[in-house]
Amino acid sequence: MKTEKFQSPRVLEALLTGPGLIWLLVFFLLPTFNVLLISFRPSTLTGGIGEGWTLETFTQLRNPNYPLIVFRTLWVSAWITALCLLFSIPVAYCLARAPARWKTRLLLLIMVPFLTNFIIRVFAWKVILHPEGWVASAFIAVGWMEAGTQLLYNVHAVVLVSVYTYLPFSLLPVYAAAEKFDFTLLEAAMDLGCKRLEAFLKVFVPGISRGVWTATLLVLIPNLGAYVIPDIIGGHRSMMLGNIIARRLFSDRNLPHAAALSSLLTLLVLVPMVVVIFVRRRREAST
C-alpha cells in the first residue's frame, strides 16, 4: 500500500516529463557535447573534421581580435538588456494600472507589430536608417547631423534595433509580475514619506524582481549569440561573437574553430544563467 501510494505519482511524473527530457537530451544536450568534442578535432583543408584529437584550435583562439569581440558582445548585450528593462518597467507599470478594459487592447497594440516577420522588421530598420531615409533627412534638415553621415553600420544602430526587437521579451514577464503587484504597497510607501518616484524605485521595482530577472535572461541570452541584427545592421565594424562563428563556419570552413567559439559562447550564456538561478535560490531560501 505504502509503496504504491509513493510510486504512482512518481510514475506519472516520469511519464509526463520523460518525452520532454528525451527531446532535450537528443536534440540539445548531445549536440552541445558534440560541438564541444568537435572543437578538439583537427580541421581538414576541405572543410571537414579530421581524425584524432588536438588542442590546436584552442591555441588559435588567441587571435588578437577576439578579446575585443567578446568584450563588445558582452557590452552590447548588457546595454540592450538594460535599455529593454528601462522601457519595460514603466510601461508595465502603466499597463498594470490601466483600467481593465484597456489592458488587453494596449497589450495587443504593443504586440501586433511583432506578428510581422523578424527579418522584414530588421530590413525595415535598414530603410529607416538609410542615409537617404527619412530619419537621416530629418536630422540633416534640423542640423543635428552632417550630410553623408552614416546612421547604419555601427554599434548604436545594433543596440537600437535589438532593443526594438527584444522589447516584448522583456515587457511580457515584467508586465506579468506587475499585474500581480499589490499597488497598496505604493500608497503605504508614500504614507511613510516617500515621493512618487522614490516609492516606485523602493517598492515597485523590488516587488516585480522575479519578472525583471526573467526578462534579463530572455533578452541577454539571445543577444549574446546574436547574429542576424549585427550582420544586417552592424556591418563588419560591429561584429559580435555570432558573426565570427558564422564566418569561421561559412567562409573559412573551419568547423573545429567555429565549434570552439560556440563552446565559448555557450559558456558565456551559462554564466549569467547560473548566477541568476543561484541568486534566486539564495533569495528564496532566505525568505
Partner: peptide, 14 residues
C-alpha cells in the same frame, strides 16, 4: 503627519 494601517497591512514583502 498622519500614518495609515491598511486593511491588508501592506507590509513590504521584500
Amino acid at each position: 503627519k498622519v500614518n495609515t494601517i491598511f486593511q491588508s497591512y501592506a507590509l513590504f514583502p521584500h
